[in-house]
Design a protein around this nucleic acid. Structure first.
Length: 408
RNA sequence: GGAGGGAUGCCCGAGUGGCCAAAGGGAGCAGACUGUAAAUCUGCCGGCGCACGCCUACGAAGGUUCAAAUCCUUCUCCCUCCA
C-alpha cells in the first residue's frame, strides 16, 4: 500500500467533486491516518430495491475506489430497513418489506457488480436492519427527539411540498434520521453521495455530533444525467445504462446520448484522468475527433471497463455493421411461429405474428406500427395491417429500428 | 371538532348531462432528415376479430336518466382555513 501524505490524498479526493463539507474534519482525519491512525471509514448508502448498478451509481462508487486505493475502508450500507420507508422524493408510503431472501439476493447482485469497481478486500457490506430491527420504540423516539421540524423543513424537497400544500408524512422525516443514524452505527468518517443527498448527509453529520462522535465529512459527487439528457439517471425513468447490461446495449445506449452529455460522461463515468483526459478534450477541440468519434471512444471505453476489451471490440463492430452499415445484427433471436396462428394454408397475419412474438405490446400497437411503416419482413416494409405472410425458416422480422426476430 | 376545496389516461392538466376514448402539454413510440446525437417536421399514443362495431376507462360502490367524467347517496384518500 502506498501511503501518501495527506496533502496528496486530499488533492486526489477532491477531483471531480461537486461539493465537500467538513473539509477541515477530513484533513484532520487524514493527518491522523498519516501518523499511524486507523484507515478512514467511508460510507455509501445503497437502495436495497434496485440492485442494478448503473452509470449513475458508479460516480460515487468510483470515488469510493479512490479512497480504497489510498488505503481506506469502504462501508456499503444496504438500506434494507430504511427501504421500508422510501426516500421522500415523491409519494411516500410504507413499502412492503422485502423478504430476507430478496434482500440477500439483491445484496449478492450488488456484490457481483461492485466488485467490478471496488476492491473487495477493503469493502464491507452491511445491512442497516442489523442495528434497527432490534430497536425498541423508545430508541426511535429518542432519535426523533434529536431533530426539529423546522430543520426538517429546510430540506428543499420538504419546503417545496409544504409551500405547495402537498402532503408530507411524518414517516418521511424518519428517512433522513435513520440514514443519518447509519453513520453513527458504523462510525463513519466520510460519507459519499450525490448532490441530491446533501440534506440526508448533513443530518448524519449533525446527529453524529449529538451522539458525541466526530462528525463525518461529506463528499458529494455530481449527478449524472440520464440518456435523455434531462433528468438524472435512474432506473425508474428508464434513462439508465446498467453496467451489467449486454455489451451491445451499453454501446448502443451510449451512442444515443446527446452530444452535450459527452463531457460529463467522460469525466464522471470513465477512468480517464489527468493528461489522458486533457488530450481527449484537446482532440475534440481541434476537430480531430468528431462528436461521433468521441462518442464511439466513450462507448467503447465503457464496455471495456465492465466487460473487457474483447466484448468492446465486438460491440463496436456490431454497431457499425447494423447502424452505420445498415446491415442486420449478427445474432437475431430465433422464434418459433405458433401453430395456432396459421390458417390451413400455413399463412399468418403479420400483426398476430409480431404480437405473439412480443415484438409489440398489443395487436393494436402492432397495427399502428404497420400503418406507420415501422414493420419489415425481410427488410421490406409492409404497410397493410391485415397483410398475411407465409412464414418460412430464416425469414427476418423487424419492428422499428432495433427489434429483430428470425423465424425458426 | 367545525367550515370549505379536491381525486381525470404513464405524468401534468382541461372538461360540469349527450358532439368524450375524453382538449392541451410532457414523456414514449414510428416515419422523414441524420451520426441510433441535437433540432425540426409528420403520424400515433386503452384493448379486441378494428371497415362505420364491441368492451374497458375519469378515486370506490350504488342510484337518477333514453343518455353521466359531468347530477344524487354512501364510502375511501388528500388539501386548506378555524379550533
Amino acid at each position: 500500500m502506498v501511503t501518501l501524505a495527506w496533502q496528496d490524498s486530499l488533492k486526489i479526493l477532491k477531483q471531480g467533486l461537486s461539493e465537500i463539507i467538513g473539509e477541515e474534519d477530513l484533513i484532520a482525519k487524514l493527518k491522523k491516518r498519516d501518523q499511524g491512525g486507523p484507515p478512514l471509514r467511508v460510507k455509501l448508502g445503497l437502495d436495497p430495491t434496485a440492485p442494478d448498478i448503473h452509470l449513475g451509481h458508479t460516480v460515487p462508487l468510483r470515488k469510493m475506489r479512490e479512497f480504497q486505493d489510498l488505503g481506506h475502508e469502504a462501508y456499503l450500507i444496504i438500506g434494507d430497513f430504511t427501504g421500508r420507508i422510501g426516500d421522500p422524493s415523491q409519494k411516500s408510503e410504507i413499502r412492503k418489506q422485502l423478504t430476507e431472501e430478496e434482500v440477500m439476493k439483491n445484496a449478492q447482485t450488488y456484490q457481483d457488480q461492485f466488485s467490478k469497481i471496488l476492491d473487495p478486500e477493503k469493502t464491507h457490506l452491511v445491512f442497516n436492519s442489523e442495528w434497527f430491527s432490534p430497536w425498541a420504540p423508545e430508541e426511535f423516539l429518542n432519535l426523533a427527539s434529536k431533530y426539529t421540524v423546522a430543520r426538517m423543513l429546510e430540506r428543499d424537497d420538504f419546503a417545496r411540498r409544504y409551500q405547495e400544500g402537498k402532503p408530507i408524512s411524518i414517516l418521511e422525516f424518519f428517512y433522513p434520521l435513520l440514514q443519518g443514524y447509519d453513520s453513527i452505527a458504523i462510525k463513519a468518517d466520510v460519507e459519499l453521495g450525490g448532490t441530491d443527498q446533501k440534506f440526508n448527509l448533513l443530518v448524519g453529520r449533525q446527529l453524529q455530533k449529538e451522539y458525541g462522535q466526530n462528525p463525518q465529512a461529506l463528499i458529494m459527487t455530481p449527478l449524472l444525467e440520464g440518456t435523455d439528457g434531462v433528468q438524472k439517471m435512474s432506473k425508474s425513468l428508464n434513462n439508465y445504462i446498467g453496467i451489467n447490461e449486454d455489451p451491445r446495449e451499453i454501446y448502443g445506449k451510449t451512442m444515443s446520448i446527446s452530444d452535450d452529455l459527452l463531457e460529463s460522461y467522460i469525466t464522471l463515468t470513465t477512468d480517464m484522468r489527468g493528461e489522458e483526459l486533457e488530450k481527449y478534450r484537446e482532440r475534440i477541440k481541434k476537430g480531430e475527433f468528431s462528436p461521433l468519434q468521441a462518442k464511439k471512444f466513450l462507448a467503447r471505453r465503457l464496455v471495456e471497463m465492465y466487460h473487457g476489451q474483447e466484448k468492446a471490440q465486438k460491440a463496436e463492430e456490431e454497431f457499425s455493421r447494423v447502424f452505420s452499415g445498415g446491415h442486420l445484427p449478427e445474432d437475431i433471436p430465433e422464434e418459433e411461429v405458433p401453430q395456432e396462428l396459421k390458417d390451413h394454408q400455413g399463412n399468418v397475419r403479420l400483426v398476430h405474428l409480431i404480437s405473439a412474438l412480443n415484438m409489440v405490446s398489443s395487436k393494436s400497437e402492432g397495427r399502428r406500427l404497420i400503418n406507420q411503416g415501422g414493420v419489415y419482413v425481410d427488410e421490406e416494409r409492409i404497410k397493410d395491417p391485415n397483410q398475411e405472410i407465409t412464414p418460412r425458416s430464416g425469414m427476418i422480422l423487424r419492428v422499428g429500428k432495433r427489434k429483430f426476430a428470425r423465424v425458426k
